[in-house]
């Protein structure tokens, strides 16, 4: 929801802390998840994630969440799906070139990042989207891959 999504950016700091806690829990549950099986867990966990993040961030379930690096403003709401920063078309009032009624997600991201402790990761280079992951749970990916050597760092 648009209004809630703006709220989330204003509360990026709190959400950052909340997520750090969630991530610890997810990684802690790794043995349990492994026993149940990630593929079996995928549908219910993805549904939960979609519900929660959909409400707070208008999450699109790209399956490779980088909210922690984008000031809690979901980059997949950018009509150009830019994951590395704003385009050059941002309007003088900070609204989007493509959707004039919407605030540019990167104007919001920049604001949110400044409220966060780890906000400088907005400068990290993000790889292109892996389009095979749409609809899958980022949380489970974090549980499975976070801190595992040889795996790319996963975010939630």
């Amino acid at each position: 929801m648009y209004a809630l999504r703006q709220w989330s950016v204003r509360h990026a700091r709190g959400l950052e802390r909340l997520y750090a806690g969630l991530e610890r829990v997810l990684v802690g549950l790794r043995p349990l998840f492994a026993r149940i099986g990630y593929e079996r867990l995928e549908p219910p966990v993805a549904a939960m994630e979609r519900g929660a993040k959909g409400l707070l961030f208008d999450c699109r379930m790209c399956g490779q969440c980088i909210l922690s690096d984008t000031g809690m403003s979901c980059p997949m709401n950018c009509p150009k799906s830019l994951r590395n920063g704003p385009c050059g078309g941002v309007r003088p009032n900070g609204h989007c070139e493509v959707k004039p009624e919407m605030r540019c997600v990167w104007v919001a991201a920049w604001e949110g990042a400044q409220r966060m402790n780890g906000g400088t990761t907005i400068l990290d280079l993000q790889p292109p989207v892996d389009h095979r992951l749409w609809g899958r749970s980022s949380w489970l990916r974090v549980a499975r891959e976070k801190g595992v050597p040889g795996r790319p760092p996963a975010h939630g």
């Binding site: 704003p86 078309g89 941002v90 990167w106």
Partner: peptide, 14 residues
């Protein structure tokens, strides 16, 4: 010349 102005140089650095 487009917002967020304070971010633009950093973005160029990126």
């Amino acid at each position: 010349f487009a917002p967020p102005y304070e971010y633009r140089a950093l973005h160029m650095g990126k």
